[in-house]
């Protein structure tokens, strides 16, 4: 049995490659774009930029705190630094450096975080950060973006180069379906309604947008009409899009590769509670660390795949 998917794909690629390609293009467009990386240039796909603009690239060694400070200093001088490392080391390890030197000081630093979430896979829980979105969205001045596939990550990377202010850009390691158009315009803070529906709203971010696309087809087979909204920008959250959708459907599901505590779902709950209380079910990691395994096995074990979104959607519907 094959599903009638609204969005299909012919190719898979990692979102970090979308970042690497977008970063190179941003560097070609604007000579002020510079790069930094803490000994993970290959993993972050920053090598092409480094090769083309060696004088604008700074290998910091395994010293993330220093990398964040140097980025703030480069921004003072008018540069647009893209500082890359794994999401765990780009947030938890350097939270105070980001808070004081970047967010509070309002520096035009782009924190580029790869290998986020469970889909990092076999490296296990030490590297699978599931708290980064929460930490970053709590910081005043910080914009938080979590695109869904290669094309959207590339578009987001180009968009943040043109935006003035601190940004946290989150992406991942696994090969993932490319299901959004190459020529998309990325608008920071503007949610994208990908599929119209009337029974339940599914708000998804990052890799989970693909799972939401699959879940929509599964629900449709059972006669349930789901609306799928791609929340690529966690902060500022497009509250208007969320409220408009829930006003129509009356219930919602959030889906993210992150702890339920403090993530996208919490932000949506806050919006709904203040404006239009409605049933909301969360698809995310429930107060637990991850473990080693393949991305698919991990998403299944921790309840983060399309089948879990379907289950959550039905539960939300039953609570209307």
């Amino acid at each position: 049995m094959s599903l009638d998917l609204k969005f299909t794909y012919t190719e898979k690629k990692d979102t970090r490659s979308g970042f690497g390609d977008g970063f190179l293009e941003a560097g070609r467009k604007n000579p002020n774009v510079v790069g930094l990386c803490a000994d993970l240039i290959g993993s972050l796909k920053m090598g092409a930029f480094q090769k083309e603009f060696p004088e604008r690239f700074f290998q910091t060694g395994i010293a993330e705190a220093n990398m964040i400070g140097i980025s703030a200093g480069l921004a003072i001088g008018g540069k647009i630094p893209f500082a890359g490392t794994f999401a765990n080391f780009a947030t938890g390890r350097v939270y105070d450096q980001i808070r004081q030197s970047v967010a509070y000081s309002n520096k035009n630093v782009k924190i580029c975080a790869s290998h986020a979430g469970l889909t990092l896979g076999e490296d296990g829980a030490t590297h699978q950060i599931l708290e980064d979105l929460g930490m970053m969205k709590m910081l005043p001045h910080m914009t938080v973006i979590n695109p869904c596939d290669y094309n959207q990550t590339k578009a987001a990377t180009l968009a943040i180069a043109e935006y003035e202010g601190p940004v946290y850009l989150r992406f991942g390691r696994p090969s993932w379906p490319i299901f959004t158009p190459a020529d998309q315009k990325f608008e920071i803070g503007k949610a994208w309604k990908m599929i119209d529906g009337k029974d339940v709203s599914i708000f998804a971010t990052g890799h989970m947008v693909w799972e939401a696309n699959v879940a929509e087809a599964m629900l449709r087979e059972e006669g349930i009409s789901a609306e799928v909204i791609n929340i690529h920008t966690i902060k500022p959250l497009d509250e208007e899009a969320i409220l408009e959708s829930v006003k129509k459907t009356g219930c919602a599901v959030s889906a993210e590769e992150h702890q339920i505590n403090g993530g996208l779902g919490d932000a949506i709950a806050q919006t709904l509670a203040r404006n239009n209380p409605a049933p909301l079910e969360y698809v995310g990691v429930n107060d637990s660390f991850g473990e080693s395994g393949t991305p698919t096995a991990l998403l299944e074990k921790y309840g983060l795949n399309a089948a879990n979104i379907v289950k959550a959607a039905k539960k939300a519907l039953s609570r209307k």
Partner: peptide, 9 residues
């Protein structure tokens, strides 16, 4: 660290 970034800028 910040001073170094400014110096490199």
């Amino acid at each position: 660290s910040v001073a170094l970034g400014a110096a490199q800028s």
